[in-house]
Design a protein around this nucleic acid. Structure first.
Length: 648
RNA sequence: GGGCUCGUAGUCUAGGCUGGAUUAGGACACUGGCCUGCGGAGCCGGAGAUCGAGGGUUCAAAUCCCUCCGGGCCCGCCA
């Protein structure tokens, strides 16, 4: 509103003075310092460039010609600096308006609805069901879920999907190991159990395979290949020793059973093939193993308040013929051809033909690599199946956001190009790859650089461990600070503090940045953290509780302190921040906003009394301000999935 | 070799799309105060940065363009 008022009056004055100049942008921005008012325009610099006059002279001229009789929220305007025009707010009116608006809309305040609501699918997490979710993958569900919350609050209809990648050799590896053990019931969290079986089985199988290769290489006496195999073998042997030590019984059992097998490699492939061709026994086995793992995922995710609306099995797209249909269509396009028994999609060619490079953000010199759709044995590849899945998603939604690591950039690009090849331009244009960078483990003393997480080698920290540790540390903290609380109460608080801290740490960093995992990063309970915001919220609640009265007759014109006005401004900015964060898919902007507001509030809290302020009209106005802060902090926290507690 | 991405104090990070009053904003660690009223998971202050390097565009560059350097990832009949 204030923005509009400034814009209108400025435009009018501009028309009056310089009817011939046309400026699309008035470049109104928030100045860096409150002394410069609350909104400023740098248009005089542009104007000066056009007609060669001095910017500050122009600014003075313009400011003089603004129609001041029409102002309601603008208090005064002045030209400043080298050529800025500064607009100053009339806080006497603005404060009341902002605070009352926040209190009126309450849980809806700030969540400005879009004028073009869409059906949006956010596909996130989609981890292979082979082992527990680990810290490297944890960025995905948190970002995905937060995006979903934001888009929903923006007025879209949002569906959260999990793509279950159950087709492929790796799934058969676990299924094989599980069957060898006699399909036991897990005696621990099911995904942790499956994770052990997966790592141990693939380790044993891998060593057997490498040994065989070694024999062959010896006969061929190719020293180079020999070295390479030896190196790989050494690595796996080290992994085996580690696993044997950590899970001795399970390792022994699996080792005994697999050693009896003449050709484990082949047995695994057989399971794989049987599953893809809908063999009843294979389905029973594989689905059971996958279900166990998914059950573990659900437990982990529900702890951090993340759920999915749909669990989509990759295999079902193969069985239902969706994949075959897509292939059929692709075959008739000029970009797909059979080369030496395989089906190849020339992604580069269609990009050239349709001139897609600028649209896809590619350099002219870049040639998109082609993609194999079907193997020589007739089976399909991952991206091929993803194409079928994507089309299915677009039957249910107008827009699809895939939260997937940036290591899959090329695959996601090829997927998009595939949609163009199918003539589904509108799908391609509404397919968003929300990419985030990898998380690595910190380097140990022995290593120079950070270690890559390897789930295949069992080298990871599980998401469960991270949450456990965070909650444990939070519990210590709570016990220190509020020793008088009951054990049960302390546990309850520790849970949302610990989980909140983890969630905040993952959402507050720009997803494009690579992250090295350290406990310090996640277990931060100080200023730039969820607990700090939660604490501030609890503080605000505490004041309101102590006051034990509603602000009956607030006089907002008494809020003349700089601190108070800064808070009012922050409250008023929340809707803009939310809209921008959502449109640009930047959850971190909300986290940043929340800390900023909490920060200002704590300063205010420290400097000015609320309940005992005099006169009562001021006390009431401050009470209403505290209430508005409480509301905005809670809304900001809730949209990024963090609990806003009344006490902690 | 090609592509994508990141590089901001000892450490972590904001700003970058949309250039502007910026002496680059915060946090951790370091350090000096506040134990004053409504919760100290707090508040106020100090010190610490040639924004990876070099060019260019501009009245104005952390921001836009080019080149280079360093880290990570991808370029598979894996997923």
């Amino acid at each position: 509103m204030f923005h509009q008022e400034c814009e209108n009056s400025l435009r009018k004055a501009l028309e009056k003075l310089y009817p011939e100049t046309q400026l699309a942008e008035l470049s109104l921005k928030k100045p860096p310092n409150p002394e410069f008012g609350q909104l400023a325009s740098s248009l005089c610099f542009d104007l000066a460039k056009k007609n060669g006059k001095n910017p500050i002279v122009l600014a003075k001229q313009l400011a003089k010609n603004l129609d001041k009789t029409r102002f309601s929220l603008v208090k005064h305007v002045d030209p400043a600096g080298a050529g800025y025009i500064n607009f100053h707010l009339d806080f006497a009116k603005f404060s009341g308006l902002t605070i009352e608006s926040a209190r009126h809309f309450d849980a809806e305040y700030g969540f400005v609805k879009t004028s073009t609501p869409m059906r949006i699918i956010v596909e996130h997490t989609s981890a292979n069901p082979l082992h527990p979710l680990h810290i490297g993958q944890a960025r995905n569900p948190v970002l995905g879920d937060t995006l979903a919350r934001m888009l929903k609050s923006r007025g879209h209809t949002v569906f959260r999907h999990f793509y279950i990648d159950d087709v492929g050799r790796q799934s058969s590896v676990v299924a094989y190991g599980y069957a060898k053990l006699g399909k036991p019931e897990p005696d621990e969290k099911p995904d942790h159990f499956i994770g052990k079986i997966y790592t141990i089985t693939s380790c044993i199988v891998e060593i057997a395979r490498l040994k065989k290769e070694l024999e062959q290489a010896k006969q061929a006496s190719s020293t180079e290949a020999l070295q390479k195999i030896n190196k790989e073998l050494d690595e796996w042997v080290a992994v085996a020793a580690d696993l044997q030590q950590r899970f001795s019984e399970l390792f022994r059992k699996l080792h005994d059973e697999i050693s009896k097998e003449e050709n484990p490699e082949r047995a695994i492939n057989l399971i794989n093939q049987a599953y893809e061709t809908q063999d009843k026994k294979a389905i029973e086995l594989s689905r059971h193993v996958t279900d166990l793992c998914l059950e573990g995922f659900k437990q982990t995710l529900s702890r951090i308040d993340i759920t999915h609306d749909s669990w989509d099995w990759e295999s079902s797209f193969v069985w239902s013929g969706h994949v075959a249909d897509v292939l059929q269509k692709l075959k008739s396009s000029p970009y797909v051809s059979k080369i030496g028994g395989i089906l190849e999609f020339e992604a580069g060619k269609i990009v050239e033909d349709l001139g897609l490079k600028p649209k896809l953000g590619l350099r002219e010199s870049y040639e998109v690599p082609s993609l194999t759709l079907v193997r020589s044995d007739g089976t399909t590849l991952y991206t091929t199946r993803d194409l079928a899945y994507t089309l299915w998603k677009f039957e249910k939604a107008d827009r699809v956001i895939n939260v997937i690591g940036m290591e899959q950039n090329l695959a996601q690009l090829q997927l998009k190009i595939g949609l163009y090849a199918l003539g589904r331009r509108e799908c391609a244009e509404n397919l968003v790859h929300f990419a985030y960078n990898l998380v690595s483990l910190p380097s140990s003393k022995a290593q120079v650089r950070s270690e890559r997480i390897s789930s295949r080698m069992g080298r990871y920290i599980t998401f469960d461990e991270v949450m456990d540790e965070a909650v444990r540390r939070a519990f210590e903290e709570v016990s220190k600070r509020s020793a008088e609380l009951s054990e049960k109460e302390k546990k309850r608080i520790a849970e949302f503090v610990g989980i909140g801290a983890v969630r905040y740490a993952l959402v507050a960093v720009d997803p494009q940045k690579p992250v090295v995992f350290t406990w310090d990063r996640v277990l931060d309970f100080e200023k730039n953290s969820a607990p700090y915001i939660q604490y501030t919220h609890a503080r605000a609640c505490s004041i309101l509780r102590k006051a034990a009265r509603a602000p009956e007759k607030p006089d907002y014109s008494l809020l003349t302190e700089k601190l108070e006005q800064e808070i009012v401004l922050a409250l008023a900015e929340f809707p803009d921040t939310f809209v921008e964060a959502t449109e640009f898919l930047k959850p971190s902007a909300i986290a940043e906003f929340a800390v900023l507001l909490a920060d200002k509030f704590n300063t205010f809290y420290n400097a000015l009394p609320v309940i005992k302020a005099e006169p009562p009209q001021l006390s009431d106005a401050r009470l209403a301000l505290v209430d508005a802060v409480r509301i905005v902090l809670r809304n900001a926290l809730s949209v990024i999935g963090i609990v806003a507690p009344e006490r902690m």
